[in-house]
Design a protein around this nucleic acid. Structure first.
Lengths: 167, 167
DNA sequence: TATTGTTATACTCTATAACTATA
DNA sequence: TATAGTTATAGAGTATAACAATA
């Protein structure tokens, strides 16, 4: 049944053939073809590669972009709150913020109410860079995904991903 | 529009409210809610976590499982071929094979035709472990995904992932 | 005593250069 | 000279423990 269906994965390796002549570059992926986790991982890597390429002019990784979006939408939060909301561990968030702050995209300000906390704020430059990044993401990255998937499949995919959020 | 739709991501942080009273633990994920790459990454991490948990009895990672499947379906291939077919770089495949070979799940045999090549073969033990792993994946991991998604969405998701393979 | 930001550290993945033995 | 397997190494990403300042 792996041979009865023509998947993109099998198309990569070589053209379809009626006789199963073992050409050197054709692999049988077996149950990996139907394993959601495997296909998911490969797709995710490609999507991140494309994101990085599309936003290369602004030198922002997907993770950095997600931090800037969270800072814009949730001003006045401290480091721990932003980090955990994004699934980033607090120790690992320190160097991430260092990198963004050294580029003057955000700044840490001591909370007047709790001097242990650093409230993280977008700078004007950060707001400007984020605005340009959003435009690149929308017009290049997401546009390319839309062209490949179509509006219907894009919406369907988001709906399924939302289901998986409770996994 | 981010607030007009109830996503699982927003449900995680807190219950729905009509008035936008800023509860301490509610975050606005902004355009991340609609960013395919972001949702993809989170979902993929959850799926891999579940895979590892379901196959924990056999101590196989998703990557190791994929290698064993490829060895079973493509016997007589050398290291470079298996590695590149899985998107693994040749240097990094060495230690992966070392780990599997030290557990006697596979073995390297010198090719009689080209003494540079190591043909990688599943051992009987490897075949046995793989067989048990496939059963765990099917009855626990994939079964859990099926229960959450339903047969229809599972098939739809695989079809969309196949589209993304050409991304 | 508990929490925030931080340092140190370690382990996994990923990526590149260069070596060896074969061809 | 080119290729297969390997070593060494470096960089991200992720994880835990512990410390100083503050509550």
């Amino acid at each position: 049944m792996a041979a009865s269906r023509m998947t993109a994965a099998s198309r990569v390796a070589g053209a379809a053939r009626k006789d199963p002549a073992p050409e050197d570059d054709v692999f049988d992926y077996g149950e990996l073809s139907e394993l959601l986790g495997y296909q998911f991982k490969r797709a995710q890597l490609r999507i991140f590669e494309d994101f990085i390429r599309c936003v290369a002019a602004l030198q922002l990784t997907p993770a950095q972009f997600s931090v800037l979006v969270m800072l814009e939408k949730n001003p006045g939060r401290n480091q721990t709150e932003i980090a955990t909301a994004l699934g980033i561990l607090r120790p690992n968030f320190v160097s991430m913020l260092d990198a963004l702050e050294s580029r003057e995209l955000c700044e840490r300000v001591r909370s007047p109410h709790d001097r242990r906390s650093h409230l993280v704020m977008l700078t004007d430059k950060g707001r400007s860079v984020l605005s340009r990044a959003k435009r690149l993401v929308a017009t290049k990255h997401e546009a390319r995904l839309n062209a490949l998937l179509g509006e219907g499949d894009r919406a369907t995919l988001l709906r399924i991903l939302d289901k998986l959020a409770g996994f």
